Simulated scan of single mutants.
Amino acid sequence: MTQSFDAALQAFAPQLPLGVGLSGGADSTALLLACHARWPGQVVALHVHHGLQAAADHFEAHCRTLCDGLGVPLRAGRVNARPRPGQSPEDAARRARYACFEALALDPSAQVAIKDIAIAQHADDQAETLLLALSRGAGAPGLAAMPAQWERAGLRWHRPLLRVAGRDVRSWLQSRGVAWIEDPTNADERYTRNRIRRQLLPALEAVFPQFRETFARSAAHAAQASALLHELAESDLAGAGNPPRIDALRALSAPRQANLLRHWLRQAHGAVPSAAQLAELQAQLADCATRGHRIRIRVGAGFVVRKGSVLGWYNS
């Protein structure tokens, strides 16, 4: 079930002091105000200047004015969020933003050490993420969408509003008469996520009013399945060796073999094979009955190759 804004904040129990991601938009502004009201003097705002539009300076100035009025410290950082060739703008901005949050939280020159960070994604954002994953043919890890809590780089991350509808976040903020900034790119339907938000979510609500709850339940099921697949891959890799032996791979069923290969490539080499690349690799393994059979298949920025009795890897 979705939660009210107040119920979600009441259930939120981070370690203090708490960093709160602040863009200046409605969602992050509401989260900052609510956290500051609950833990006065224990909240630090974290702002990322993406440098992608002329209004970015105005966003930072607005955040400073808001934080000064509240008496909340603000740490701001600037990043280059322009995408690399073949990278989506959304992915580039997301990666840059999280890296900057980490740097701001762990800044050795800061007087206050932050171990927990809260960010303001809500139930509508979760639904958009799941729909994006479905549109890309994602497996269980992608369909798990966004976790409510996770750990990375020695930090604990939280999404306390993940079961709160976006309209309820804005209603809470409007009831307090606090202004926020509307990012003009949020209306740009060249971005897939914006098209989902503006076109698909209203249609879903008209046909399936409870879609936020059912989507969240499906994402939770996918997260459980993903965790089980990870455990199985760890066990199979321990048995096959790292790098995996070809004979051990060939002894597995096709689904378990695919699961192990995805896990090995991601964990050992940071590579995510496409469905076509994985199918070709498995076909080559099936044909790998003699020591003379060669394997050389591109995956991501490198190649999977045969090195005697095991699979190997080298960067291109």
Rank of each mutant, 00 (worst) to 15 (best):
D168C: 01
V43Q: 08
Q121F: 09
V164T: 12
V48G: 02
E234I: 01
A56W: 00
Q15L: 06
L285F: 03
L155C: 09
W313E: 03
L32P: 04
I114T: 05
H269D: 10
A92F: 00
A225W: 12
A92W: 00
H47I: 02
R190H: 10
R296P: 03
A37K: 07
A233E: 12
D188L: 02
E280W: 06
A138P: 00
L74N: 07
H49F: 08
Q224I: 07
A54I: 00
L130K: 00
L281R: 08
R156W: 01
A11G: 13
A118E: 05
W172I: 09
V20S: 06
H158V: 03
D236F: 06
Q210E: 14
L16T: 05
G137C: 06
Q282D: 03
I181Q: 13
E213V: 13
R136L: 15
G300R: 01
G142R: 02
G51K: 01
P202R: 02
S309T: 14
A286H: 10
D168H: 14
Q87S: 04
L70P: 07
G41I: 07
V169T: 15
L261R: 09
S226P: 09
T214W: 13
S235G: 07
R306W: 08
R193D: 01
S88Y: 01
D168E: 15
G21L: 12
L46T: 05
L237G: 03
V169R: 10
D57Q: 11
G19V: 03
V43L: 02
A127I: 09
L74T: 07
K115N: 12
V207S: 13
P108Q: 10
F59T: 00
E234L: 13
R176L: 12
D125P: 03
Q126C: 01
F12T: 04
A222V: 04
G25R: 06
G19R: 09
L249I: 09
Q121W: 08
G51F: 04
E90D: 14
L261Y: 09
S226W: 10
G69C: 11
Q53C: 06
A216H: 15
A275V: 13
G24K: 01
L52C: 09
G302I: 04
L130S: 07
P83M: 04
Q15C: 07
V44Y: 11
R75F: 12
E90T: 08
L161M: 14
R167E: 15
S28E: 09
H221E: 15
E102F: 05
E151V: 11
T29E: 06
R95P: 00
A220P: 03
H49A: 11
D57N: 07
R94I: 13
A216I: 04
A286C: 11
G139Y: 02
R82F: 00
H158Y: 08
L173Q: 06
L130G: 02
V310C: 14
R152M: 10
P85N: 09
Q42K: 11
A103M: 10
A96M: 07
G71W: 04
W157M: 08
F211K: 00
Y191R: 02
L265Q: 08
A286F: 00
L31D: 03
Q111W: 14
Y98L: 06
A103Q: 15
A123H: 08
R156D: 01
K307Y: 00
R195A: 14
C288V: 06
S226M: 06
L130I: 01
A123C: 10
L162T: 12
